[in-house]
């Protein structure tokens, strides 16, 4: 019994040890044979310490959960009693109905198909935008001539919303798929470019001089100083760009798509499948949330110096 308790509580200290991964190896003396009672006491202390340390986060999490539950509850009542005071909840599906239609859609795999296709479009458009905008921003930030040439063009094109590109895009690209990917690309391109430029502008000149006095050549300065110094800004751009990419994608799919989660939502409206509308919307929300979480996660891996505080 005691062993079982130990085993179950063993994974717990792992996150507690995480905040100070550097100090841990030096501060913990190698103690292979500690009495189990003593280690149990220590684990208990660590858990308590962890709880104390993360009190604010736990509190935030709890409040968030309650607030979400309240939101669902009010949605449920508004839809069940078909409340109508100027805003009409008459045809709005209840959360339960949405859940049922999710179960149905999950069963026949149709929804998943749409989701996968949308994700592929996002991934393609966003990755291509990143691969072009980041190097372009770095070069524009470093070389004045490049900036003077490219900046005016980007300033003219930037205010045009990605949705306004839909007709042009359909004309430009041979297939519907390519034109939708292009819209996604356009949407995320400018936020990424501008933030990369901003990052380049805010590089501390002392760091550049320090690298020069350590023997860095032009390419090394670029790779070792300008690029890492701009990374926080670049990731801000990626997060914003990802948001805009989803906005653009959904709009494009609603206008010209035959597949995709935006098309699914619009089709549900045309076919009077009201619960599918809400299902589509929730899917879009979850997808947007997860994609920005992925970017944040990558950012944390790529910039360990930012999270190690």
């Amino acid at each position: 019994m005691k062993r079982a308790v130990l085993m179950r509580s063993l994974p717990a200290p792992a996150p507690a040890a995480l905040p100070s991964p550097v100090l841990a190896p030096q501060m913990q003396p190698p103690a292979p044979n500690v009495a189990s009672e003593q280690s149990l006491f220590r684990i208990n202390a660590i858990v308590r310490h962890w709880l104390l340390q993360h009190r604010d986060q736990i509190r935030t999490l709890a409040i968030g959960a309650v607030s979400l539950a309240l939101f669902l509850l009010s949605w449920h009542f508004l839809a069940t009693y078909r409340v109508s005071f100027h805003v009409r909840f008459t045809n709005v599906p209840t959360p339960v109905q949405v859940f049922q239609s999710l179960a149905r859609a999950a069963h026949n795999g149709r929804l998943l198909q749409h989701v996968v296709l949308s994700c592929r479009r996002i991934a393609l458009g966003f990755i291509i935008a990143t691969l072009i905008a980041v190097p372009l921003g770095l070069v524009m930030g470093r070389f004045r001539f490049a900036r003077d040439v490219i900046f005016p063009i980007s300033e003219v094109l930037r205010p045009i919303p990605a949705i306004a590109w839909v007709p042009m895009s359909i004309m430009l690209w041979p297939s519907n798929e390519e034109s939708i990917v292009f819209i996604t690309f356009i949407g995320s391109f400018f936020p990424i470019l501008l933030n990369t430029l901003h990052g380049m502008a805010s590089v501390d000149p002392v760091l550049v001089r320090a690298s020069q006095s350590l023997g860095a050549n032009e390419f090394a300065i670029f790779r070792e100083v300008y690029f890492p110094a701009s990374l926080p800004s670049i990731f801000t751009g990626l997060t914003v760009g990802m948001g805009v990419a989803w906005v653009s994608l959904i709009a494009a799919e609603m206008i010209s798509g035959q597949f995709g989660i935006g098309y699914f939502t619009w089709e549900a409206y045309s076919l009077v499948q009201y619960s599918d509308i809400a299902l589509g919307m929730i899917c879009i929300g979850v997808l947007g949330l997860s994609s920005s979480a992925i970017i944040r996660g990558i950012g944390r891996i790529v910039m360990p110096w930012k999270t190690n505080t």
């Binding site: 001089r209 320090a210 350590l214 110094a229 110096w305």
Partner: peptide, 26 residues
């Protein structure tokens, strides 16, 4: 500028994205 003349600046000029050892390795 050259590595023949080592320089220490008033403003802390360690690269924030490199660990202490990686800074020394630079």
């Amino acid at each position: 500028p050259s590595a023949d003349r080592g320089m220490v600046f008033q403003q802390y000029s360690l690269f924030p994205w490199k660990t202490v050892r990686e800074n020394v390795e630079f």
